[in-house]
Simulated scan of single mutants.
Amino acid sequence: MVIEHEQLERSSLTRYVSPKGDFEGFRDDEHYREKLKEWGLSSAKEAKREFLFKERNYQRVVTIKGYETYGKSEEYNTLVIEFQDGNLCCIHPAFLKEMQASSFGKESMLQLEEKDFSTPEQVTVTEVKEEKKELKSESNPEPKKAKAAKPKKEKEPQIELPVDKVHFTASVKQFALTYNPFNEENDEVVVLENVQIIQEPAIELGLAWCSHSKTLKKFELAPGDQLEFDGKVAKKKLAKGKDVEEEFIVDTPVLYKVNNPSKIVKSK
């Protein structure tokens, strides 16, 4: 009874930001583990199920029910967590990760004291970096130097990416490592070439990349393998891995990411 009473008191103190509507759930345990690893929340074989939600003077136990996507190409995620009283709330994965640290509350990595912790447009590392840059420029103003006018480069025509899941053909170019700031590790990815979206008219993407998930590893892919699959595509540049051998670095910019490939067919 005492525990239930404490939960009710904490519920009245918590600021809830409900999901905007329907949100993405997890297909199965493997999908749940992959997403936790991507967010840097757990990389263990037995995926963590309960997390701590902390405020200055209390903490609560929550579970992750799913996630929302946002951004122009829907490449970013906001978590949907559930409290023990059944309330749902949105939170940025990096902030939930920070809450798990014993030192949480002393100095926030994202400096969110005056911000709504759960609004994805506000809770971004990029925004914090921009704020620091502005403060630095105000305290140390540098004289502007006149720059010689550079000839304008012609912009390449932008590809209008489909929003829904589509059918792809591609071939495996190589395997690479990309740095994941959430778990502060390098993640293995598959780099694809000759990527084409099969529709009328067909869309030629050239290069794209996707996570080398357990589902893909079952196919024992090798460079040169021809693939057909369904998936969603987003404009997200492949970042280089940190301190990796040259064979795991891609020498050409890869601007597109394929999310959740399914119905995969491999041929040589």
Rank of each mutant, 00 (worst) to 15 (best):
M1A: 15
I3Q: 13
E4N: 08
E6Q: 10
E9S: 07
R10M: 07
S11T: 05
S11E: 08
S11N: 07
T14V: 04
V17Y: 04
P19N: 02
K20V: 10
K20E: 12
G21K: 01
G25R: 06
F26R: 00
F26M: 04
D28R: 01
H31W: 06
E34W: 09
K35T: 12
L36Q: 03
K37Y: 11
G40H: 09
L41N: 07
S42P: 03
A44R: 15
E46F: 00
R49T: 00
L52I: 00
F53G: 00
R56L: 11
N57W: 08
Y58C: 02
Q59L: 04
R60W: 02
V62C: 00
T63Q: 07
T69G: 01
T69M: 05
Y70P: 03
G71S: 08
G71M: 10
G71Y: 11
K72P: 05
K72H: 08
D85W: 05
N87I: 09
C89S: 15
C90G: 05
H92S: 15
L96F: 01
Q100V: 02
Q100N: 05
A101W: 06
F104I: 10
F104C: 06
K106N: 15
E107P: 08
E114N: 15
F117Q: 12
S118W: 03
P120R: 03
V123D: 03
E127I: 13
S137P: 02
S139C: 10
A146N: 15
P157S: 06
V163W: 09
V166A: 01
V166F: 02
F168G: 03
T169L: 03
T169S: 07
S171C: 03
V172C: 05
V172Q: 04
T178Y: 02
T178P: 04
P181N: 00
F182Y: 15
E184A: 09
D187P: 08
V189F: 09
V189R: 07
V191L: 12
I197R: 06
I197S: 07
P201W: 08
P201I: 08
L207V: 08
A208G: 09
W209E: 09
H212F: 14
H212Q: 11
S213K: 08
T215R: 11
L216S: 05
K217N: 07
K218N: 13
E228S: 13
G231I: 08
K232Q: 14
V233N: 06
V233D: 07
K242P: 05
D243P: 01
E245H: 10
E246Y: 10
E247F: 06
I249M: 12
K257I: 11
S262N: 11
K268A: 15
K268D: 15
